[in-house]
Design a protein around this nucleic acid. Structure first.
Lengths: 290, 290
DNA sequence: CACAATCTGAAACATCTGTTTCATCGCTTG
DNA sequence: CAAGCGATGAAACAGATGTTTCAGATTGTG
C-alpha cells in the first residue's frame, strides 16, 4: 500500500485489533474528522467521553508517531477535500477533466446523479403512490426480472420479506415462471423489471398476467420498451451511463423508495416484524459478532 | 457586529483601518483559513513571519473577543463547507417542501445523491485503481455476498460475464462456498460485498481466503465492519438513508465503475465479445423483438 | 480460585499556547 | 530638533496541551 494512507484507512485496517475504548475513540475520529483536525486532544476527549490518554494511545495504535502526526494527516485530508470541493462543481457538470486516476468513478457518479435527479423531477404527483397501492393491496405479488434485472428483483424480494409474506420471485424455489403465473388471479399483482435488451421471458409473463386480469406494475428504461404495452402502472427510469451498459442506480433508488412506501403502508407493526427478524438472524448465528 | 459574519467579511470591512503588520496577518488569515482553524497561533505566526502578538491583536481588531473565538468562527465555516458537499442533495431536500405524494422519492433521491457524491469525493487517487488491478490480474475471482448483498453480487457477475470468464459467484451452480474457496490460491482473488448486518458466511470466507494468501477486495459500509480485518483493498461506501434499511445506491455506482474499469483494462476486444454475446442472446430468442 | 496479562483513567510532568507587559522603534507635529 | 504617539516584537506569565506513569479494574487462563 502506498504512502497516502488516510486516517480512516488506518482505522479500517486496525479496527478489529483495537480494544474497546480505542474503538470508541476511533469511532469518534472517523465520524468527526473536523473536530480532530481542529480542536485540541483534550477537548476532543471530553466531548467524546473518552479519556485523553486513550486518544494519545489511539494515534500510536494507528501507526502514528504522535497524536500530532495523526492530526497533521487529518489536516492534509481536509485540505484535499476543500480543494476538490471547489473543482467538483465543475468536474461533475462540465466535461473538464477530473482528478487523475478517478476519471471513471467521477463520470459514473455524475451520470447516476443526473439520472436520480431526473427520476425525482419527472415523477408526477400520485403516480408512484398509485402503483404502490396496487402492490400493497394485492393478495400476492409476483416479482419478475431476467438477465441484469434478476439481481435487483432478488434484492427487492429480500427487502419486502422482512415485513410481508405476499412477495415471491418468479423462478425461485423450484417453481417455474409458468407455474407461478398460473396461480395468479385478478386479486394479485405482478411487478416486472425489464431493461434493454428486454428478456422475452419477462415480457411474456407480463402479457400472460395482463390477459388474466392481474394488475401489472412495470419498471423499465424507455418509452419504446415492449413491457409498456402490458403495464397498468409504468415507471420509466433513466439509465444513461458513460459506459456501454446502462446504469441501474436510479432504478435502485426507485426500488428502495417503493419498499419504504410499502413499509409505511404496512403500519407500525411492520417495523416490529423487522426488529424481530433481525434478532432471529443474529440468534441463528448468521451474522458476524466478532 | 452581528453573529453571521465570516472572518473574511470582517477582514474586508476592517482592512483599510489596519496597520501594516496587521494587514500582513490578515492577508495570511484570508489566504490560509485552514491553517488558522487548524494550527496553533504560534505556528501560524512563525510560518507567516508575523509575530504571535500581532495575530492576537488581529483577532481583537476584527471584533473578536479572543483569538480562540476567531478560530472558532473558522471552524464553523469549514464545517459548513464540508457539510454542504452535496449542494444538490441539499437543494432537493430544502427547495420548499416536496410536492405532495412524492416525499419519499424526494428524500431517498436526496440521500442517495449525497452518498454518491461522498463516495466520489472521498475516493483518493489510485486506491480504486489498485483494487481493480488486483481483480484484473487474478487468475480467477470469487464473488461473495449474502443477505441483501447477494443480488448485487449476481449483478456484478452478470456484467463481468459479458467479457471475462474468470468470475464466479460463490454458492451458485451447485458449488458450495467451501468448495469454491478450496480451489483458490495466491494467484486468485476474492471480492466480498458485506453490509450490516454482516453475514458470518461472508466474513468467514474472507478470513479463509486471506489465510490462503488469496488477494481480498472488500466493499463494506463502515470503518467498524469486521470484513476490513481481512481486506487487502477496502472500499467504504456510505449507505445513509432516511429509512431503516440502508441504501445500496452508492455501492451500485462503485460496482458499475469497477466493471467499467475492468472492461477498459480488458482491451478493445472485450467490447467485441459483448457485441457478439448480445447478438447471440437475440438469436436464441431470449429477447423480445415485438 | 489465583495468576498473569491487558486495559484504562487519574494525576504528574515537561512543554507549548495565547496574552500582556514593556522597552524600542519610526513617524508625525509643533 | 524634541516631544508625543501608535506600532511592534521580545519576553514574561498563567493556563492549557499531549504524554507518561502508576495504580486499580477487567479479562482470560491454568
Amino acid at each position: 500500500m502506498p504512502q497516502s494512507t488516510t486516517i480512516e484507512d488506518r482505522i479500517s485496517k486496525s479496527y478489529a485489533g483495537l480494544s474497546d475504548k480505542l474503538q470508541l475513540a476511533a469511532d469518534y475520529v472517523a465520524e468527526n474528522p473536523i473536530d480532530v483536525a481542529t480542536r485540541s486532544l483534550r477537548s476532543v476527549a471530553s466531548t467524546s467521553g473518552v479519556s485523553p490518554a486513550t486518544f494519545s494511545r489511539l494515534a500510536r495504535a494507528l501507526g502514528y508517531k504522535d497524536y500530532e502526526q495523526m492530526r497533521e494527516d487529518g489536516r492534509a485530508a481536509m485540505g484535499r477535500k476543500m480543494e476538490s470541493f471547489s473543482e467538483r462543481a465543475h468536474a461533475l457538470r462540465s466535461s473538464s477533466k477530473p482528478p487523475e486516476g478517478r476519471v471513471y468513478l467521477n463520470r459514473q457518479a455524475a451520470a447516476c446523479i443526473a439520472n436520480i435527479e431526473f427520476l425525482d423531477r419527472d415523477m408526477s404527483n400520485g403516480r408512484l403512490e398509485a402503483g404502490v397501492d396496487t402492490l400493497h393491496n394485492a393478495n400476492s405479488v409476483l416479482l419478475v426480472g431476467s438477465l441484469g434485472s434478476s439481481g435487483f428483483v432478488d434484492y427487492f424480494s429480500y427487502l419486502t420479506h422482512w415485513f410481508s409474506k405476499t412477495w415471491q420471485v418468479a423462478g425461485r424455489n423450484g417453481t417455474t415462471l409458468a407455474a407461478a403465473l398460473a396461480r395468479l388471479g385478478p386479486e394479485d399483482a405482478i411487478l416486472a423489471l425489464s431493461k434493454a435488451p428486454y428478456a422475452k421471458r419477462t415480457i411474456s409473463a407480463l402479457k400472460a398476467a395482463k390477459q388474466k386480469g392481474v394488475a401489472t406494475v412495470v419498471i423499465t428504461d424507455s418509452h419504446s420498451s415492449p413491457a409498456l404495452e402490458f403495464a397498468d402502472h409504468a415507471y420509466i427510469v433513466p439509465t444513461e451511463s458513460p459506459q456501454f451498459f446502462s446504469s441501474y442506480a436510479a432504478t435502485l433508488v426507485l426500488i428502495e423508495t417503493i419498499v419504504t412506501m410499502l413499509l409505511t403502508k404496512s403500519g407500525p407493526e411492520a417495523e416490529d416484524m423487522i426488529r424481530a427478524a433481525e434478532d432471529q438472524i443474529r440468534s441463528l448465528g448468521e451474522t458476524w459478532t466478532g
